[in-house]
C-alpha cells in the first residue's frame, strides 16, 4: 500500500517537474495550435482553391486550372480594379480625417476639466455600438426624403443631397460613417499616449518662449510619434477590411452600380452570393498580399523612426 502511494506520489512529482520545466510551451501551445490550425489550414486551402475552378456546391468536384483565376482577376477592369481603388480611397480618406480629427479632440481632452468623465463616455459610445446597427441608423439619417441630414441642410438653406442613394455620394457618405464610429478609437489611443508623456520638455519649450503651435509641432508631436504610428497601424488594418457598414447599408455587391464595392465586399459576394470559390480565393489571396504589403511598409517606417 505504502509502496503504491509513494510511486504514485513520485509519478505526480515527475509529472509536476516536467510540467514546470516545459511550462513555456505547455502554456503557449494550445492557443498557438488553435490559431495555427484555424489560420494555416484555411490559408493553405484558400491557396489551393484559388488554383481550381471550384464553383457552385461545396461538394461539387473541381479541376485544377493553374493561375487561370489570377489572370482572370488581374485582367478584370470592371470589378476587381475598381474595387481595389475604392478600398484604398475609402481607407486613405477615412484614415486621414480620423487622424487629424482624433489628434484635435485628444489635445482638447488632454488637460483635466470638469465633466471629463461624461465627455469620455460620449466618445466611447459610437466605438462600442454594433456596426450593423450603426449602418442602419445612418441609413435612416441619410434617407433623402425623411432623413435628418437633409432636414438639417434645408434648415441651413442648403439643397438636399442624395447621400447613400447616389453612386457618386455613397462612398464619401460611408467614409463619413466610418469617421464617426472610429475617430473615438484614435482619440483614446492618442490620449493614452499624451497622458504618458512627461511634462518637462513642454515646460522647457514654454520657458524658451515657444508658442502653442510650436510646442505641439516640435515637442509634443515628435514625442507622440510612436503612438501615432500604432494608431495608424490599427486603424488601417480595420479600415482596409471594412465590411459591416458597407454591406448593411448597400447590400450585395456594394449597391446596384457596385458603387461601394471594396475588395472585402467583392470577395464576399464572389464566395457566398455567386459561390465562385475558386475566383473568390484568388481575389482573397491578392487582398491578403495587399494588406501584408501595407503593414510591412508601415512597420518599416516605424523601425526607421526609432
Amino acid at each position: 500500500m505504502t509502496v503504491l502511494t509513494t510511486t504514485r506520489k513520485s509519478a505526480w512529482r515527475a509529472y509536476s517537474d516536467w510540467a514546470n520545466t516545459h511550462r513555456k510551451w505547455l502554456f503557449a501551445a494550445p492557443a498557438m495550435i488553435f490559431v495555427g490550425v484555424l489560420i494555416a489550414f484555411p490559408l493553405a486551402w484558400t491557396l489551393y482553391l484559388s488554383l481550381t475552378d471550384a464553383h457552385g456546391s461545396v461538394r461539387a468536384a473541381s479541376h485544377f486550372v493553374g493561375f487561370g483565376n489570377y489572370l482572370e482577376v488581374l485582367k478584370d477592369t470592371e470589378r476587381f480594379w475598381p474595387a481595389t481603388g475604392r478600398t484604398f480611397a475609402f481607407t486613405l480618406s477615412a484614415l486621414a480625417v480620423e487622424m487629424v480629427l482624433g489628434m484635435c479632440i485628444a489635445l482638447l481632452l488632454w488637460r483635466p476639466f470638469r465633466g471629463e468623465k461624461w465627455v469620455r463616455v460620449a466618445i466611447l459610445l459610437p466605438l462600442v455600438a454594433t456596426p450593423v446597427a450603426v449602418g442602419m441608423m445612418w441609413r435612416l439619417i441619410f434617407d433623402p426624403n425623411i432623413g435628418f441630414a437633409n432636414q438639417l441642410l434645408n434648415f441651413l438653406g442648403l439643397p438636399s443631397q442624395p447621400w447613400l442613394s447616389s453612386p457618386e455620394t455613397a462612398l464619401p457618405t460611408l467614409v463619413f460613417v466610418d469617421i464617426w464610429q472610429w475617430t473615438p478609437m484614435v482619440v483614446l489611443i492618442l490620449l493614452a499616449g499624451l497622458t504618458a508623456l512627461s511634462d518637462e520638455p513642454d515646460e522647457a519649450a514654454r520657458i524658451d518662449g515657444a508658442n502653442a503651435w510650436q510646442r505641439f509641432r516640435f515637442v509634443t508631436l515628435p514625442l507622440l510619434m510612436p503612438t501615432v504610428i500604432v494608431a495608424v497601424l490599427l486603424r488601417s488594418i480595420d479600415a482596409l477590411k471594412t465590411f459591416d457598414i458597407l454591406y448593411a447599408t448597400k447590400g450585395k455587391g456594394g449597391g446596384s452600380f457596385n458603387e461601394v464595392e471594396t475588395l472585402n465586399v467583392y470577395a464576399y459576394g464572389l464566395s457566398f452570393d455567386y459561390n465562385s470559390y475558386g475566383l473568390a480565393s484568388a481575389v482573397l489571396i491578392l487582398f491578403f498580399l495587399i494588406i501584408v504589403a501595407c503593414m510591412f511598409i508601415l512597420t518599416r517606417r516605424r523601425k526607421g523612426n526609432k
Binding site: M32, I39, F41, P42, K241, Y277, L284, F288
Partner: peptide
C-alpha cells in the same frame, strides 16, 4: 508564457489573426 519568455515570434502568429481578412477564412471554414 509569451510575455515572460519574450516569445515575440510566437506572439506574431497569434496576432496574424488580426490582420487576415475574415472572408479568406470563411471560405475554407464554410
Amino acid at each position: 508564457a509569451m510575455s515572460r519568455f519574450t516569445m515575440h515570434r510566437s506572439a506574431l502568429v497569434v496576432l496574424m489573426a488580426r490582420i487576415i481578412p475574415g472572408v479568406s477564412l470563411l471560405v475554407p471554414w464554410y
